Computed example of a mutant assay.
Amino acid sequence: MVTLEDVAKLANVSTMTVSKVLRGTGAISKQTRTRVFEAADQLGYVPNRLAGSLSARKSMLVAVLIPSIADTVYAEIISSLHSLLDQASLSIFIAESLMDPDVEERQVQELLSLRPAFLVRSGGIASTERTKILLQRFGVPHIQIWDGDDPQGQATVGPSHVEAGKIAASHFLELGLRKVAYIGAETHKDICASRRMESFIGDMTAAGAETRVLTEPDLPRQAESGELLTHRLLEDGLQVDGIFYLNDAMAIGGLRVLLKAGFRVPEDVRVMGFNGTSREQTINTRLTTISTNGHELGQTVAKAILENIGGRLPKSCTLCPVTLDLGNTT
């Protein structure tokens, strides 16, 4: 862990000067302040927000950084994670990255300043260099979740999104589909979604199928966006026999448009989503989707944390199974 003394040595000043600069007190020259801040940034130093009487206590806090607490996928994971950690008297503190690298950097620094026992962070974001430095040098054990294709930290727990794309392509090809589309949003932010898309399109193209990608960087990944982009697909006059959507929400939105336009699903168009969040809201139409078990993922993460705290090294990478859940839309 980077210390105050490390910053002082690099900036060629006393630890007292570093302390005053970081607390914004004392009559310190602008040149010295700049030198101290540059040294702190270079080393990845994060001030202790719990300095004083609390700093001597062993932390019982697990910091969790996810894209959004409104995302049903992460709600299931966190609920499962908390159920085991609570039995060990560990508490969790949740923050959102909003899939934004700059927001993630700020949140990582804030979370590390709390001196947690562990940091659980969702992967699939193009993290800034400073975020990488903070994670590498700060000394807080770090588990990455959701991105099983690019292991990071002490351990990684998550599905392979490359495999998810391959499963989607395999299902469409088994159905004999030759003209397909992928519809998504914000794929430039979401590396995991990009991997699924590229894997799906790659396998479909390699099999000789005609493919069309329709994504919009400024639209949210919600049902309304699925409606809008499916409308756009139909307005372009493109005839497809299968559509793979970024997630279940967008697929549900797309289904509304297709059914309203008179298409029969699955007779005319096959529709598939991802993440399985539509299963609990199904009445008549049961969406075919690809998913991983969020409850098991959360339990695996909790067990890895408890193993580490107990002095045992957790498995470096645990790939969570990705499954095809057949509905009546394919």
Rank of each mutant, 00 (worst) to 15 (best):
F93S: 12
G254D: 03
P47A: 00
T215H: 06
A126C: 04
G52I: 08
I183M: 15
V157L: 15
I252S: 08
L219F: 12
Q42R: 13
H295A: 12
A155C: 14
L259H: 09
L22S: 09
T72R: 06
L43C: 01
K260C: 00
A63K: 03
G327E: 04
T156G: 15
T288D: 02
G226C: 07
I125G: 01
S122H: 03
D241L: 14
T187R: 12
V265M: 10
A117D: 01
M60V: 08
T318A: 14
V64F: 12
R195T: 07
I252C: 01
L61G: 02
R279M: 00
Q154F: 12
R195I: 13
L234C: 11
R115G: 12
T205P: 14
R130I: 04
S291Y: 08
R212F: 06
S59G: 05
L229V: 11
H142V: 05
G165K: 13
D102Q: 03
A251V: 00
L111K: 01
Q109F: 03
N328K: 09
I167P: 15
I133F: 02
G24R: 11
G237F: 07
G202S: 07
G310N: 13
S170A: 11
D6W: 07
N284Q: 01
K179M: 12
S19W: 00
V2L: 03
G24F: 02
L214A: 03
E163S: 12
L22Y: 05
L319A: 14
I66Y: 06
A207I: 08
K260W: 07
L175Y: 09
R270M: 04
T318E: 14
V265Y: 07
A95C: 09
I283F: 01
A56Y: 08
D325N: 10
L214V: 01
A168P: 05
K20I: 05
D248E: 00
R121K: 08
A8H: 01
L287P: 06
T318I: 13
F93W: 05
E163I: 14
G273E: 02
P67T: 06
A39N: 02
S160K: 15
V157C: 15
I191L: 03
K58N: 02
S127Q: 08
P321S: 14
H188T: 05
S83F: 04
E105K: 11
L324I: 11
E96A: 08
V265I: 15
V21G: 03
K166I: 14
T32N: 09
R49T: 00
S194I: 01
T15I: 01
Q152C: 15
A27C: 00
I252P: 07
D71A: 07
T300P: 13
A207R: 11
R264M: 00
T72K: 13
A209L: 08
G123K: 05
V271N: 15
R33V: 00
V265S: 13
E76M: 06
